[in-house]
Simulated scan of single mutants.
Amino acid sequence: MTEKLKVGIAGYGVVGKRRRRYIDSHPAMVTLAVSDMTFGGDGALEDGVRFYDGYEKLDAEDLDVLFVSLTNNVAADAVIKGLERGLHVFCEKPPGKSPADIKNVLAAAAEHPNLKVKYGFNHRYHDSVRDALAIMRSGELGRIVNLKGTYGKSRIITFGQNDWRTRRDLAGGGILLDQGIHMVDLLRLFGGEFTEIHSFISNAFWNFDVEDNAYALMRTDDGVVAMLHSSATQWRHGFQLDIILAKGALTLSGILSGSKSYGAETLTIAWANEKDKGNPREQTTSYNHDPSWRDEVNEFADAILNDKPITNGSPMEALKTMELVQRIYCADPEWRERWNLSSG
């Protein structure tokens, strides 16, 4: 392929701008146009990239690829419209407000089998996660016994973000759907598919119509148990995933992020021994570089250029993660009744 893939970005906020950095640094991609409602009109940026105040106006551009970084209530529609235009589409998480949205995307994708659709679950591309997954899959530490994931920040909206994440009509859910979905995805990645779920969902602190805390206890058919806490009342931002295996443990603590508020990213490996008296030999690795945004974009470009299947972040993977989020919501009978939710 001699010409670069021509890219449009629908939603040019913090995430859209970060995606553009890695799109334009890829040798086979270039950004032609962006859209965001904050522009208040149409025109051109200083570097010549055209901008529009609505994502529908990107239809005027001759594109090959669409990156979607829009609010949850319109994200799935934008993906579907991109496919109908014959574009490969990358969409940020979450895929929409509910599993129904991603089911509509799957139906549209089935009508365009030659186009690639990928969802942005970038935590899978952090080196600590990739290293932990490789150790688990090697079998060195035996089978997984249980997992415990905590991911939280001090508010649902932080660092000057727009308030749409606090509105059920636009977001569909709160901290669990917005940030906690990353931990749900990782619990599935390491633990498998969870079929028995118990939960408590609360909006009692910030009093928005979306949750500020979600607590879940889950189990797979083969007995792997996972505990999850997704929080918007964690005053010190934090990320931790504990994976207990038959012969040791993996602890992922901290995550490198744009805000730099989640602590140092580390992976601690513990090797259990009958003689260690609860103080096993451990090794901790620190990670000082976040390759996730670059590697995720590069993998998507490679799938397009070389007609490779989407593995991480495929529409089906996104659906399974969205369905698990929905089942966590519905496992709390009071929350399910209050918002008339269905896990089907």
Score class of each variant (00 low, 15 high):
Asp53Ala: 14
His88Ile: 06
Glu61Ile: 06
Asp36Asn: 10
Gly82Ser: 12
Leu83Ser: 03
Leu63Tyr: 06
Leu87Arg: 03
Met37Ala: 15
Gly43Lys: 06
Ala44Asp: 14
Asp24Met: 07
Ala44Trp: 02
Ile23His: 10
Thr31Ser: 05
Asp59Ile: 08
Ala28Arg: 11
Leu63Ile: 14
Ala75Asn: 07
Ser25His: 12
Gly41Phe: 10
Leu63Arg: 08
Leu58Phe: 13
Ser25Lys: 13
Thr38Ala: 13
Leu70Lys: 05
Asp62Trp: 00
Asp64Gly: 04
Leu32Asn: 12
Gly41Cys: 09
Glu46Gly: 09
Phe39Ile: 01
Ser25Trp: 02
Met29Tyr: 02
Gly48His: 01
Leu66Val: 11
Ser35Lys: 07
Glu46Lys: 01
Asp59Thr: 12
Met29Trp: 06
Gly86His: 02
His88Tyr: 05
Ala60Val: 07
Gly40Ala: 04
Arg50Glu: 15
Tyr55Arg: 04
Leu58Asn: 01
Asp47Glu: 14
Ser35His: 03
Asp53Glu: 11
Gly82His: 07
Gly40Met: 06
Val49Ser: 10
Leu70Tyr: 06
Leu66Ile: 08
Thr31Asn: 08
Leu63Ser: 01
Val79Lys: 05
Leu45Phe: 13
Thr38Tyr: 06
Asp53Asn: 15
Glu46His: 04
Ala76Trp: 02
Gly86Tyr: 05
Ala44His: 11
Leu70Asn: 07
Asp36Glu: 00
Glu84Ser: 03
Gly48Asp: 12
Val68Thr: 07
Phe67Glu: 13
Ile80Pro: 01
Leu58Val: 09
Phe51Val: 10
Asp24Pro: 13
Glu84His: 09
Asp64Arg: 14
Ala76His: 10
Lys57Phe: 04
Leu32Arg: 15
Gly48Lys: 00
Tyr52Val: 09
Lys57Met: 00
Ala33Val: 11
Ala28Tyr: 14
Val34Cys: 04
Gly41Leu: 05
Ala76Asn: 06
Ser25Gly: 00
Asn72Trp: 11
Val79Ala: 01
Asp53Lys: 12
Asp24Ala: 03
Lys81Cys: 14
Gly43Ala: 04
Glu61Tyr: 09
